[in-house]
Structure formats: C-alpha cells, structure tokens
Design a protein around this nucleic acid. Structure first.
Lengths: 165, 165
DNA sequence: TAAAATTGTTAGACATGTCTAACAATTTTG
DNA sequence: CAAAATTGTTAGACATGTCTAACAATTTTA
C-alpha cells in the first residue's frame, strides 16, 4: 500500500480551477474571478493565485483585470476532468442510486484520484448498464430490492442461476 | 460543484498512517517507524512527525524511541479506513475486473474522499453481486463480454428483457 | 461623470505535510 | 562489550494552497 505520487500532471486544486473555467465559459460566456471563487468555494485571492500558476503553464490566458480563457491545452485537460466527473456522477447516481448532490460531490473528489484504467472501466460499466436492458433489469432493480429488504429477491437463487446455464 | 470541506476528522495522510499502523500491528506485532515509512513511501521524519500529531489527538501511543500502538479510538478510525479500503478494492477487482495492484491503489486514494453514503452503497453493491448468483451471471459475465467485444452479448437485447418481464 | 459599490490584485501569514542534514539512541556484531 | 550499523528524532527548509487585510481597477448608479 505504498502511497503513489502524482499520476496526473495537475493537482486536484488546479484541475478544479480548469474544470470551473471550462464550465463557466461554456458558450463563450465571459468568465469572472468572482464566479470561479463562488463555484469552488474559495476566496478571490486564491483564484488569482491559481490563475497565475495556470498561466505560467500556458493552460490559461489571463491578464490583470482582464479576460480569463483556457488555452487549447488547458481546454483539453479541463475536458478530460469533466469527462471523468460526468462518468463518475452517472455511476453513483444511476448505478448506485445515490442522490444527485452527493453523486456530484463524490465525483468531484474521486475524479482527481482515480487511475486511468479504473476510470475507463467504470465509464464502460456505466455505458453497459445504460445500454443493456437485461443488465438494467437485473441489476439496478434487483439491487434496489436488496437495498430495501436487506435480502436477495426470490429469483436470485442458485437454482435459477444454474437453470439459466 | 462547490468544493466540500472535510467530512472526516482526519486528513488523508493521517488516515494512511493509522491504517498502516493497524495493518503492521496485526497479531500484536511490534510496529517500527521504518516499516511505516516504507509502507507509505515516505521518509522516517515524516512518520515521526505524524506520530506526534496522532499522539496529541490520542489516537496513537508513542514515546521517543519506544513502542507504537493505536489507542482504542485510533483503532476504531483505522478499522473504518481498512473497511473502506477493502470494500473499494473488491469493487474494482471483482466488479470491474481491474488487476489487484491497481484496484488497491485506487482504493487507497478513494477511501479518503468518498462520502459515507456512497461508501455504504458501494459496499452493499459488492455484497450484492457477490451474494447473488444471478447478478453475478448477468453482470460481470456479460460485462466482460462487452469489454472484450465492444458490443452487447446476444442475450442482452430488448426482446429478451421484455420476455423476462 | 463623479462618487459609491463591486471586483480583482498584492503582500504576507498560516496550515499541512513533505524533505534533507545532523545528531541521538538502540541494536547488531566482531 | 565496544565499535559499527541501523533506526529514530530534531531542526529547519520548502511546496502547495488557503486565508485576511489593504489597496487598485473597473463598473454601476445617482
């Protein structure tokens, strides 16, 4: 259980800033420091400081009191974070039946630490249960029964399983 | 997507230290600073420093050059971390088919950030697919087919799903 | 359009957790 | 059992990312 060092180039914080800028800028909207600060729950100086760092890395264009915009490279990183965010949110909300708010909060944390491999598999997993009606019928439904009653549904026995084979 | 503040009392780092001490101490084994440092991939002074902090919080008993032991309270926290770790590992390894090493690494990160609600549901989910042979037959198997071939298995169609209802 | 309000920046403090270098205690071993 | 090796600690530097306070620029509005 050796603690792993960064497998991603950006820290969780910097990823959050990039993600926020991308989301706020959707549809060419002008992005303000204030908005970012509110979206992320930090004070404005923290945003200014983050913008400076991200500018130095050429992920963001930003001049004093001026516009805030992702560079193509910054946008690429942001899109990737958003992709992870959405896949995770769908997993928690749809597969596990978690409420939207909690699903988002968890996605927001996990998106920064999950490995590329697990992320890919989790995304495929969500795709699968969304695409496969049989999977859907069997899984979320029986799983909900299990959650509610604390025991397996009747048709979920070894006998049935064997029959099917 | 406001960034949430600590929902847990311990930071990820401190949870890692508690977890490591609990694991190394399994079966009344003597726990050494060196071992902790190796297990977590940090240098010894970091361990000493962490032990001081955890001692102040009465989660660990530790005296200079002496024994290292969790207090009952520290053990409680550690057990909880280990529980999350194991449930997450099983999820990645068994439900998603991720290799053990990656499953553990991801568990190691996510265990510190996942919400209690999602953790509970995820654990139940793993229990469910481990307990329900039907779920097992339908999910991991068909999911693997989907992973391998990029498309749904034949028996995973709307027609079949409707029939079953 | 000038005063007021708002937004943004700078400077610097602070918390966390890491590290290296130097030293101290303990353990091993010749 | 004393020297050598190992393990552990202290002190202090450093990186990251946050904050408050003070000030500067921009925007609103009277």
């Amino acid at each position: 259980m050796v603690r792993q060092e960064a497998q991603r180039e950006q820290t969780a914080s910097m990823e959050d800033y990039l993600e926020a800028i991308a989301m706020l800028g959707e549809g060419k909207k002008v992005v303000k420091v204030k908005q970012i600060s509110e979206m992320l729950g930090v004070k404005m100086p923290s945003v200014t400081s983050a913008l400076r760092k991200l500018s130095e890395q050429e992920l963001v264009e930003h001049e004093r009191y001026g516009h805030i915009k992702l560079t193509p490279e910054g946008d690429k990183v942001a899109r990737d974070v958003i992709y992870r965010h959405e896949a995770l949110t769908r997993f928690f909300a749809q597969a596990l039946g978690i409420n939207q708010k909690t699903a988002e909060e968890d996605a927001c944390k996990i998106e920064h630490v999950i490995s590329p491999l697990s992320m890919e598999r989790l995304a495929k997993f969500v795709e699968f249960i969304e695409a496969c009606p049989l999977g859907r019928a069997n899984f979320p439904d029986r799983y909900e029964y299990y959650l509610k009653h604390g025991e397996l549904p009747q048709d979920c026995s070894n006998r049935d399983a064997k029959k099917r084979k």
